[in-house]
Computed example of a mutant assay.
Amino acid sequence: MIRVVLPVHLRTLAGAGKEVRVSVDGPVTQRGVLDAVERDFPMLRGTIRDRETGRRRPLVRFFACEEDLSNEPPDAPLPSRVASGEEPYLVVGAMAGG
């Protein structure tokens, strides 16, 4: 099971706790993890990624193992510690403004 940490506003929308666990079919990639999150929590479709393009929303960032993965290709394998469930995959709502 892949551990995914969601920001508070998405937790509220999903009716979930701080961390959700999803099963990924096939290689553990960002696309696979987000597909699984949207499959298990359909109310989150379109909140993390654009429904039409599948691209990350502008103020959403992805982290794992202390690395920013936001600009990595969606089909690149995630770190083995995420795939094993040892470390979580973090979906973070970025701050903007000045």
Score class of each variant (00 low, 15 high):
1 M>A: 04
4 V>S: 03
5 V>Y: 02
7 P>N: 06
7 P>M: 01
11 R>E: 14
12 T>M: 05
13 L>Q: 06
14 A>F: 15
14 A>V: 04
14 A>P: 14
15 G>L: 11
16 A>T: 15
17 G>H: 04
18 K>G: 14
18 K>T: 09
19 E>R: 04
20 V>D: 02
23 S>H: 06
24 V>S: 05
30 Q>L: 07
32 G>A: 00
37 V>M: 08
38 E>R: 03
39 R>D: 12
39 R>G: 07
40 D>N: 13
43 M>K: 13
44 L>A: 10
46 G>E: 14
49 R>K: 13
50 D>C: 07
50 D>W: 14
50 D>M: 04
51 R>V: 07
52 E>A: 14
53 T>K: 13
53 T>G: 10
53 T>H: 09
54 G>Q: 11
55 R>V: 14
57 R>I: 13
58 P>W: 11
58 P>S: 09
59 L>E: 04
60 V>R: 03
62 F>D: 05
62 F>K: 00
62 F>G: 02
63 F>C: 04
64 A>C: 10
66 E>R: 12
67 E>G: 01
67 E>V: 08
71 N>H: 14
72 E>C: 10
77 P>W: 03
78 L>D: 03
80 S>K: 08
80 S>D: 11
82 V>C: 03
83 A>Q: 00
85 G>C: 01
85 G>W: 11
88 P>N: 08
89 Y>D: 00
93 G>V: 09
96 A>C: 12
96 A>Q: 12
